[in-house]
Design a protein around this nucleic acid. Structure first.
Length: 302
DNA sequence: AAGACGAAAGTGGTTGA
DNA sequence: TCAACAACTTTCGTCTT
């Protein structure tokens, strides 16, 4: 069912944010739906060069397919294009070609690994509501891992989860290790270990998680207005300048900011409510809240 | 009765020797 | 590999609304 207008303010200006898997109201900022399926094109160019290459004719190259979407097959009937029998010499040649063709593609261990991994990746990504371009980025990263032989000794599923986590961090898509752990069925510490390993080996540049990216998510779960989100982001920006973010868990900081913002705007939520959707405890919210209040000199009457 | 607050002890992960 | 360490959680008693 397609969503046509915002249930809060009735506005029809809806922004579909496929990277984050959200539909957001353009007027009040309310996050109407998370985890939407991407109905846009199945690939997105990361830069002009790729756009040019991919925009050319033919099917887009898909990293999600074990053979990148390009298929050649040599059938088993020794006939030429008109159906006539082929000479024994040619037959032998064809046999050799078939053999090597198979070895070079589906039957190589790398391709077998990829076939399993990409299926798992597809499954986890869809549970997390990640759009196609993010999935492609994850698939590409996974290919790099395979190429550098980083999988050996590790569960394929754990590397898949780690790759997804890395891509989400890089793209600023708010998905916690907890969420990924839940849908992938791999323990958090296991994912974390694989994640750190591939980050080091591939020399990935992963920025710190920006707490503001969690604000829309938490606000939506708490049914808070766009005004609260605005306020919360404003608070976080100030906190960032004061150096209150570093070293702290991003979800905790974001949760505290949302909690404060809700109180300031008059849409109060209890610490427990905020804590639950953020996946932290009330104590953590209190600690962050205390720091924020002190450093930013916010007057909050509770 | 429920929520807010904070102290104290416990837990799991990181880091540096 | 081990110990120190910071962030966070759990638990609990007290205060406020």
């Amino acid at each position: 069912m397609a969503i046509k207008k915002c249930p809060i303010c009735g506005s029809k200006k809806l922004i579909r944010d496929y990277e984050r898997g959200e539909i957001v109201c353009g007027d009040c900022g309310f996050v109407i739906s998370e985890h939407i399926a991407d109905s846009g094109p199945e690939w997105r160019a990361f830069d002009a060069e790729q756009k040019k290459n991919r925009a050319r004719g033919g099917a887009p190259i898909k990293y999600m397919r074990p053979n990148k979407g390009l298929v050649t097959e040599i059938d088993q009937y020794n006939r030429d294009i008109r159906g006539a029998k082929i000479s024994p010499k040619k037959q032998a040649q064809l046999h050799r070609i078939r053999k090597w063709h198979k070895r070079a593609s589906i039957s190589s261990s790398m391709e077998r690994n990829l076939a399993i991994a990409l299926g798992e990746l597809q499954r986890v990504a869809s549970y997390l509501g990640l759009d196609e371009s993010t999935r492609e980025a994850a698939a590409l990263l996974y290919r790099k891992c395979v190429k550098q032989e980083l999988i050996r000794g590790r569960l394929i599923e754990s590397v898949v989860a780690a790759v997804i986590y890395a891509v989400c961090r890089i793209r600023g898509i708010p998905r916690t290790l907890d969420e990924i752990s839940r849908v992938s069925g791999i323990e958090k510490k296991e994912i974390g270990r694989s994640y750190r390993f591939i980050r080091r080996e591939l020399d990935l540049d992963v920025p710190l998680t920006d707490p503001t990216s969690y604000v829309p998510k938490f606000s939506a779960a708490l049914k808070l207005s766009g005004k609260v989100q605005e306020k919360a982001i404003q608070i976080l920006k100030k906190a960032l300048r004061k150096g209150l973010i570093s070293g702290r868990g991003p979800t905790g900081v974001a949760a505290a900011a949302v909690y404060i913002a809700a109180a300031l705007v008059g849409e109060r939520r209890t610490q427990k409510e905020v804590a639950d959707v953020a996946g932290v405890t009330e104590v953590t919210i209190r600690n962050r809240y205390r720091e924020l209040r002190k450093e930013l000199k916010l007057k909050v009457d509770l």
